[in-house]
Design a protein around this nucleic acid. Structure first.
Lengths: 387, 387
DNA sequence: GACACCTGAGCAACCGTTTGCATTAATTGG
DNA sequence: CCAATTAATGCAAACGGTTGCTCAGGTGTC
């Protein structure tokens, strides 16, 4: 039903190759003919079939983006940034959601494989070896994962987790809990490793809970278990879980931060809207999206491997340059969900007096009900210590 | 680099058509040969090129889903439902985000056109005529929009808005405000129409504000203006704006619901986590996603228009059956952001006494801190009146 | 033993483009 | 006025598959 290049050729009385050139190399065709062709095309409502074109050029100008769960507000900023970066280079992004299911991930890579020029694998849950294998089918850039030989961009949550633990121990907490995330998550492992080390260094105990689904529900459901650990401060795998946890603790009659402190990771927009506002580790999601697109496009900018008609196996020298692995810094954003621990509050007579948070090392923090305008209010991390 | 069907044919000593059939019609090939072919394919890491296959079969087994803004939590449930419905029928969904930009919408339809079997246009911002035109390029199903001649699934927000206004006027509010959404939104027009009518019917005044960006930021920014209208109750275009508005009102020192009542629309998960919990109009987003996929797949289940080799213009009788337009019911979910208005509170001595919400017609509402487990807590709308 | 029938595989056209090369006509230089 | 360029277009082979036919050989039936 839709017009093809042949219809246009017939209508304008030229060969299909002329029509083709009218669109992909206009300077090669006589302005007069060009206009006639254009007019016919317009009239017939012709649009080049990008799939057919891709078949021969080897370039689709599309990028696939595979996401563990679009319902998680953590991803949209990354997606938006990737999209805008891609658009600038005349690429489109197709997103696919896996529902945290490793099998769906593999399936989607196959589905996308030949319809895109490369795939951004964001917070994958499948095994490294599988990823490696899939990378032979389509160029891959992984985000929040390190797999040898593949370009990757990771957010240094380990550093963030350490800052968070130091913040908590600095407030006097000695019994900590870590609310773990999903199985298969590299981020989860990093957090665990760093938090454990930081707790040990500060001579505090840390109970690890999990794996858990990385959602509000996952946080709510674990409130009871968290209480049972006896911890006075909790670091959650992400903000969503932290928020759910606060909700759950609230149901249990525990008050945040008076009875228990909670720290999230990600700094999603929502974390500024909860009561209390969430202390969290800000991850540079937008930068990650941009960087990943850049890495992908740089990497396959020259490939295309178009073997000329008679051309034999002109094995183009494998110029696969250094497969970079970028690591992005994170920072701690101190808000209202963390307060002094039992050790410190012992020498303060009042009970609920910690509400104004005297000990927090956050001089730049806006007063309660200060303008929570988007983008603002990101108190800088105490300083240095970043490795 | 990746193996093609020809490589497999060569390796297994058969013709390419046999390899092809091994994958797309296994019963036509001798088990012995089949195994040999399969082994070779496996060994070479061969995967059929779906784009090439689509070129001739006319079916990609992909569906495009164009979304105004994935950062809006309203969409994920719709997306998830569409995905699961699609997966059941062996289809994949490619999502694209337009950033509320009509131009990006058009662009993306073109980009997706030949890579998918149809596109779900969700809450489009472009004009009806443009949509109609695009629908000649690729099968379209519109969501939250009615365009003549195209299959559509809409959520009856008009009804929801009416229920909301009736709820508010029932509580004694006489000065209402409507916090409008984005330009070009069908939903926005519907809400406005219904809310205006309902307000008039209840003899209350309604000030319409907008258009505004349908985000938290949009809500926050309008708090001051809302106050200036003197309204004691506000209906917002969506939950995100309602939540932003509550935040903004809070900064202004206005208390919800004591000083001003707020109602949202959508019933996103988040609306159950704010303080106060948001009264809102629940929209059946998941059902919409499922339905839209069904309509699309049913519609093009038989087309495929594969013209046999010598076959002339066998104009397949245009069996385009009734292009259905499904409308899904909405319902009001009463929570804690709405309270009695000035008229009613006049005969109540206490000031902040409305906190326990005596007048609300929501018998099924869970007590404060009842289990806010996902899926539960959806108090039924007062009853009937649904048109 | 002749015939119809079925199975399994090959042949080649086709999907809608792109692109290296050949062809033609118009232009330029000497 | 002729040879050599140059500009514009046509030709046909790809790209990686699918599929209607044809064909060879084996089996069953009378």
């Amino acid at each position: 039903m839709p017009a093809t290049i042949r219809d246009v050729a017939r209508a304008s009385g030229v060969h299909i190759s002329t029509v083709s050139r009218t669109f992909s190399a206009p300077h090669l065709v006589n302005p007069e003919t060009r206009n006639r062709v254009l007019a016919c095309a317009e009239h017939l409502g012709y649009r080049p079939n990008r799939a057919a074109r891709a078949l021969i050029t080897g370039r689709t100008h599309n990028i696939g983006l595979i996401i563990a769960d679009i319902a998680n507000p953590f991803f949209p900023p990354l997606i938006k940034a990737a999209e805008s970066q891609a658009r600038q280079r005349d690429y489109h992004i197709f997103i696919a959601d896996t529902n945290e299911d490793p099998a769906a991930e593999e399936d989607l890579v196959h589905a996308l494989a030949k319809q895109v020029d490369g795939v951004l694998l964001c917070s994958p849950r499948m095994s490294n070896s599988l990823i490696e294998q899939l990378s032979r089918e389509v160029p891959l850039v992984v985000i929040n994962r390190q797999v040898t030989g593949l370009p990757a961009v990771v957010m240094d949550v380990g550093q963030g987790a350490r800052l968070a633990v130091e913040h908590l121990t600095g407030l006097g907490h000695r019994e900590l809990a870590l609310l773990g995330g999903p199985r298969g998550s590299w981020t989860n492992r990093e957090i665990r490793r760093a938090a454990t080390a930081a707790a040990r260094a500060a001579d505090a105990s840390l109970t690890v809970l999990g794996p858990n689904p990385p959602t509000e529900g996952g946080g709510i459901a674990m409130a009871e278990q968290v209480r049972r650990t006896g911890a006075t401060a909790v670091l959650a795998y992400n903000d969503l879980m932290a928020i759910g946890l606060m909700e759950g603790l609230d149901s249990l009659g525990l008050r945040v931060p008076q009875d228990i402190s909670v720290v999230g990771i990600d700094d999603i927009a929502l974390s500024r809207l909860t009561r209390p506002k969430l202390t969290t580790v800000a991850t540079p999601t937008a930068a990650a999206g941009r960087t990943a697109v850049d890495m992908l496009l740089q990497h396959d900018g020259s490939s295309s491997a178009r073997a000329g008609r008679g051309g034999g196996r002109t094995s183009t020298a494998d110029d696969r340059r250094t497969t970079a692995q970028v690591s992005l810094q994170t920072e701690l954003v101190i808000r209202d969900s963390t307060g002094v621990g039992p050790a410190a509050s012992a020498d303060r007579p009042g009970t609920a007096a910690t509400a104004d948070r005297p000990g927090a090392a956050s001089p730049a923090r806006p007063g309660p009900h200060g303008h929570p305008a988007p983008g603002g209010a990101t108190a800088a991390t105490p300083e240095s210590v970043a490795s």
